[in-house]
């Protein structure tokens, strides 16, 4: 059997193990095998949806990161750092403030926000001379801070109690997990894995060079639209369900590439599984590190991701 197949099996087993561990630990000690009534409520209403949502959010963000990095030929491309997550956050917030709880409004506006932010950052980063690493990162910073200021403006309209919930949510927080959120992100993650993997060979060519890929039969514009569209769906659904968990799309594909090399046909689907494992474990730490109090999961991922970002930036 090929090495890649072993790694896939290992990732699936690792995900199962991570989910099992995450479900069985928490600030309340609950017997997983013979829970009492209160324990059952904690397990099924709180912990399990939270862990499952974390897995799907991790998969979605890692998928978006891996494919954006290949498309933009930039190992630093990441939905959170490019401002895509903030676009989705603003969309979610607008849905919440203006439309209240209209069903489906949040993910749809989150998707729209992510899509607009992606397009804006891409247009700012490309120049006649082509695209370089620093220009993209700078464009991301500008979009992020601009969107943040609008978000702050909008949150100031909220009352104090909701405001605290929102600050947590903005940092990336899984504590409000519901089964509906899980189903939505699961659908996005499964679709994302299939759609993005189907474009992986074209992405391999585009990493070599765009003109080069065109010469060899890649419809550049179509691939770009598919990747941007799918990444926006993935980030939009994730952010609508759990806020902006940062750096997952940076850390996970980077580690996967260290193990399997740069072939996107492996990097993209493996990032989905590895991202799921990563966020499930990070959220377990967030829940238990200072129990009974909790940290937002985004604080944990940023703690790991920011130093890695500096390392990658120095190396490029």
């Amino acid at each position: 059997m090929k090495r890649a197949n072993y790694i896939f099996l290992l990732l699936i087993a690792g995900l199962a193990a991570a989910v099992a561990v995450a479900v069985s630990v928490g600030s309340e000690s609950v017997s997983v095998f013979a829970p009492d009534e209160q324990g059952r409520a904690i397990l099924f209403d709180i912990r399990i949806p939270r862990v499952l949502l974390g897995a799907c959010v991790g998969a979605s963000l890692a998928l978006a990161g891996a494919s954006l990095q290949a498309l933009l030929r930039n190992p630093l491309a990441e939905p959170y750092l490019l401002g895509v997550s903030n676009g989705a956050a603003l969309g979610t917030l607008i849905a919440f403030v203006l439309l209240g709880d209209v069903a489906g409004a949040r993910p749809v506006l989150a998707f729209a926000g992510a899509g607009i932010a992606t397009f804006a950052v891409y247009q700012m980063a490309r120049s006649k001379a082509g695209m370089n690493v620093e220009r993209l990162v700078l464009a991301g910073v500008i979009i992020t801070t601009f969107l943040s200021s609008i978000i702050v403006l909008l949150t100031s309209l909220l009352d104090a109690a909701r405001l605290r919930g929102y600050t947590f949510w903005l940092l990336g927080d899984l504590s409000q997990a519901t089964y509906n959120g899980f189903y939505m992100t699961l659908a996005a993650a499964v679709a994302g894995t299939i759609v993005l993997t189907s474009q992986a060979r074209a992405l391999n060519l585009m990493m070599i060079g765009e003109r080069d890929a065109f010469d060899h039969g890649v419809e550049i514009g179509r691939v770009r639209m598919i990747i941007f569209g799918m990444a926006s769906v993935l980030v939009g659904t994730s952010v609508a369900a759990s806020g902006s968990v940062g750096y997952v799309g940076l850390i996970v594909p980077h580690i996967v590439r260290l193990v399997v090399g740069s072939d996107n046909r492996l990097v993209v689907p493996m990032s989905a599984f590895a991202g799921a494992i990563f966020v499930v474990l990070a959220d377990t730490v967030a829940r238990t590190a200072i129990a009974p109090r909790e940290l937002p999961v985004g604080a944990i991922t940023a703690l790991i991701g920011a130093p890695l970002f500096i390392f990658l930036l120095r190396r490029s």
Partner: peptide, 30 residues
């Protein structure tokens, strides 16, 4: 055969040459 092309991502020679087979490939491209 274009003039010069550079790639930041490390690609092996055989993978690079295989990328020339893209237009003959199927949907999931192995």
């Amino acid at each position: 055969v274009a003039q010069e092309n550079e790639t930041k991502f490390p690609v092996t020679v055989v993978d690079f040459v295989l990328s020339g087979r893209f237009a003959h490939g199927g949907a999931f491209g192995w």
